[in-house]
């Protein structure tokens, strides 16, 4: 079953590797993955869609929360959340089909980002099922090339971010013998 996990991580080298390591160590295949900085440049937001057996879902999130670089990992699969994906399509279109393609794009709320005698480049966003439909329709018009962003999701729950406070070290004395 597909699981959507959203993580807030420290923007440090290796942080992504640790997160994906939790999944690859258990042999799970990642369906999509997006990473980008948040408004705080020291933090990144990761959204992962991964195929995990339902019995292991909470274990995976717990293991991620254990990682030192992870501030928060939440399972958005069942919770109230909005999930979207961006799709870029390049389509070859001859003069006969151009109008029809533009019509279809309009129905899906897609934007034409490039137009040439060869065809179009189209940008669409929506939930993944909608994007699948859009891609299927576009394929019926000819050769296409597709790049998907992978899912990005935001929780609609107001989950409090619990962070550890700084720890004061007791004075360390230099070692003497």
């Amino acid at each position: 079953m597909l699981q959507i996990i959203s993580l807030l991580v420290e923007n440090k080298p290796g942080a992504l590797m640790r997160v994906t390591g939790v999944l690859t160590a258990r042999g799970f295949n990642i369906e999509s993955l997006t990473v980008a900085k948040t408004f705080d440049p020291t933090l990144s937001r990761i959204s992962i869609v991964v195929d995990v057996e339902s019995s292991l879902r909470s274990q995976v999130v717990k293991q991620m929360n254990k990682l030192v670089n992870v501030l928060q990992a939440v399972d958005l699969t069942d919770g109230p959340a909005v999930a979207r994906e961006l799709v870029l399509i390049r389509i070859r279109a001859n003069m006969n089909s151009r109008t029809a393609i533009l019509k279809e794009a309009e129905i899906f709320g897609a934007r034409i980002v490039d137009s040439s005698t060869e065809g179009f480049a189209i940008e669409a966003t929506g939930d993944p099922e909608k994007m699948n439909e859009f891609i299927d329709i576009m394929r019926s018009y000819g050769d296409i090339e597709v790049t998907r962003s992978g899912l990005v999701a935001v929780s609609l729950d107001n989950k409090k971010l619990r962070l550890s406070p700084p720890v004061v070290r007791e004075k360390t004395e230099p070692v003497t013998t």
Binding site: V68, L71, Q72, R169
Partner: peptide, 13 residues
């Protein structure tokens, strides 16, 4: 400079 504090916000104990 001596290390006086450790701040690991994601290390939840």
């Amino acid at each position: 400079t001596p290390v006086t504090t450790i701040h690991l916000p994601g290390y939840k104990l």
